[in-house]
């Protein structure tokens, strides 16, 4: 196993089911992920895409593993440079009245420009996701 480049963890006062839906359902993601949506049927082998509000594809990839409410593994590629591919894992774990969400991003290709693009982004997305699930309202994460 290659060493992941980034590992992010957040503890959310919510359930694994709600956390899973917040990642997979466009009606939720757009409320905390800067109006972006994740689109797929989330079945193993299916395609998934990360869209902006104009339905332009920002990230694309395949679903490698999908265990609803527990674990989701995706490939993550730039649609304009499919060779720049990496791998993202979402792990959801119930902990008493909390849910622990860990996002691991790794397996970047050498010279990947994606490393730079995502490194500041994940903490903002996860912090906004936590706020969204706990208060019903996400943060304005991409404002200039």
């Amino acid at each position: 196993m290659q060493k992941p480049k980034f590992v992010y963890t957040t503890y959310i006062r919510s359930t694994p089911k709600k956390t899973w839906d917040a990642i997979c359902k466009p009606e939720f993601t757009r409320q905390y992920w800067g109006e972006m949506t994740n689109v797929s049927d989330w079945k193993k082998g299916s395609k998934w895409e990360h869209h902006n509000p104009e339905h332009e594809v920002w990230v694309t990839g395949k679903v490698i593993e999908s265990i609803p409410t527990k674990r989701l593994v995706l490939t993550w590629a730039d649609p304009d440079d499919l060779a720049d591919k990496s791998r993202v894992t979402f792990e959801i774990e119930a902990m008493e009245d909390m849910t622990c969400l860990t996002v691991t991003h790794g397996s970047f290709t050498a010279g990947s420009t994606m490393v730079k693009k995502v490194s500041g982004g994940w903490p903002r997305v996860l912090s906004s996701l936590k706020t969204f699930l706990e208060t019903g309202k996400g943060l304005n994460i991409f404002c200039k």
């Binding site: 196993m1 060493k3 992941p4 980034f6 590992v7 992010y8 963890t9 957040t10 503890y11 860990t102 691991t104 903490p123 903002r124 996860l126 912090s127 906004s128 936590k130 706020t131 943060l139």
Partner: peptide, 27 residues
């Protein structure tokens, strides 16, 4: 404090900086 997260790779324990709590302070 969740500022460091651990990932096991075989028998190796790897430590990662987790900036999410800092993002919350910032926000």
């Amino acid at each position: 404090a969740k500022l460091v997260v651990v990932v096991w790779r075989g028998r190796e324990k790897l430590h990662y900086l987790n900036p999410v709590p800092l993002q919350e302070i910032y926000g």
